[in-house]
């Protein structure tokens, strides 16, 4: 290997990378806002006893979980403007696409943790004379929320990584800026390595936090 590294040509152009990182973080934050709220609503719909509510929600979740995120994003960028005759800004489109994807995964996380609340807990609620709403508010949801935090965090940081896909449809996020810079400087190794490290520097601490929370839950459960 006789490649001579030149990280300076990248560090000199750090500005665009930072701009890209800001866009990536905006995408992530907004998508998480959608995913955390809408995901909860969809989870409740999936568990509804009425088929009219349950089926569309289930279809939504399964469809987003069983197709590539890239297909969803490309579909969104090309088809939504044609079908509905709207074109939002490209960042907004990215947010909606990523947000809906995260909604599906978070809905599943909420559903799983709600259904994992042990039957005895509900029985105890009945035995204590709580009404159905009280049982949900005071027993099911607090239990479920705590259980779902690690998965929601994992999904949230997953969407941070998936957000790199919007570069393919020309949203100027970190990945896009990295690609541009790599072409301009003819320094793909240095550029892509630094871009990868930036992504890693954000993801890794969150991953460690998830691990810590899970270990703590496991010890508390004993």
């Amino acid at each position: 290997m006789n490649y001579s590294f030149d990280f300076q040509s990248v560090t000199r152009n750090f500005g665009p990378l930072l701009d890209g990182l800001v866009v990536t973080l905006q995408l992530t934050a907004a998508a998480n806002l959608i995913g955390l709220t809408l995901g909860f609503v969809v989870a409740l719909m999936v568990m509804s006893r009425w088929g009219v509510v349950r089926w569309p929600a289930t279809m939504f979740v399964e469809f987003f979980r069983c197709t590539p995120a890239l297909v969803q994003i490309v579909w969104f960028f090309y088809c939504v403007p044609m079908l509905f005759n709207v074109f939002l800004g490209s960042v907004t489109m990215g947010i909606v696409a990523l947000g809906l994807n995260l909604t599906a995964f978070n809905a599943e996380a909420y559903r799983a943790s709600i259904q994992a609340v042990p039957r005895e807990q509900l029985d105890a609620g009945i035995a204590l004379g709580l009404n159905p709403l009280q049982r949900i508010l005071y027993i099911v949801l607090p239990n479920a929320f705590r259980a779902s935090v690690p998965v929601l965090l994992t999904n949230g940081i997953g969407i941070f990584q998936q957000s790199a896909l919007v570069a393919i449809v020309a949203v100027q996020d970190l990945m896009y800026q990295g690609k541009t810079l790599a072409t301009q400087t003819y320094r793909p190794i240095e550029t892509f390595t630094i871009v990868a490290l930036i992504y890693f520097a954000v993801s890794f601490p969150v991953g460690q936090l998830v691990g810590y929370l899970e270990r703590r839950r496991a010890t508390l459960a004993e």
Binding site: Q161, Q162, L165, A167, F192, V195, A196, Y199, F200
Partner: peptide, 9 residues
């Protein structure tokens, strides 16, 4: 901890 897209690139 990194996007698959960047690994691929």
């Amino acid at each position: 901890g990194t996007p698959v897209l960047i690994q691929l690139f």
